[in-house]
Amino acid sequence: MLRDVAEQIWLEQESSSANLKLAQLATTDGLTRLANRRSLDAFLRERTPSSGFSVLLIDIDHFKGFNDALSHQAGDSCLKQIAEVIGSATKDTGGLSARYGGEEFAVVLPGVNEARAVRVADA
């Protein structure tokens, strides 16, 4: 009986761990490891206009040409590096950095005024 209980506990822990990984996969962009569009939409739904927030939209100009000329692997590597910079610049802001689309990123900064948002964007 002790073995059955220990096995049941182990199975519950494995199930919980698998559910946590699945939730993370469902909310994270597989390439950049930033939040995905689904996470961004959920994050925005939780915000109220009265609480105030700033949004940075970042679009990588001429990315298609870069991707076509240098290969999709080079493009993926570029996107990963850009995501790392965006994540680093926004990690202490309490905001959310997300991959919005192919070469588009969004950063939501709750409670951050325009002047501070500009500093984050410059970083």
Rank of each mutant, 00 (worst) to 15 (best):
I58T: 05
R47E: 06
L57V: 15
L11M: 12
L57A: 14
G101A: 15
R45M: 11
S39Y: 04
G75H: 03
A74Q: 09
S71A: 10
L2R: 11
D122Q: 13
D68H: 06
S17Y: 13
A106F: 05
S51K: 15
E46N: 12
L109H: 02
L109V: 05
G65W: 09
S54A: 10
D76I: 02
E7R: 12
N113D: 13
A35P: 05
T93N: 03
P49H: 01
N67P: 10
V55I: 14
L96Y: 02
S15G: 01
S88V: 01
L11W: 03
A35V: 00
Q13N: 14
A98R: 00
F63H: 07
S15W: 09
E7G: 14
T48Y: 06
A123C: 13
A23I: 11
D76W: 13
R45Y: 07
G94L: 07
Y100H: 09
V85N: 08
V108I: 12
S97I: 04
L70G: 04
V108W: 03
A83G: 13
A35S: 14
S16F: 12
A18Y: 10
T48K: 15
S39H: 03
N113L: 00
K80N: 00
D76V: 08
E114K: 05
S77K: 13
K64R: 03
A115L: 05
G30T: 08
E14D: 14
T28D: 11
L22W: 09
C78A: 12
N36L: 01
P49D: 04
L57G: 12
D68T: 01
T27A: 06
V120T: 03
D29K: 09
V108G: 07
L40N: 08
E104Q: 00
V5R: 06
N36S: 05
F63L: 02
F105I: 08
G87Y: 00
D59H: 13
V5E: 08
I86D: 00
V118A: 04
H62A: 13
D41S: 09
R33D: 02
R37H: 11
F63A: 09
H72D: 12
L79D: 10
E104I: 04
L31I: 10
P49K: 07
L40P: 04
S71P: 13
D61T: 10
L20K: 13
S17L: 15
F43Y: 13
L44R: 07
N36M: 05
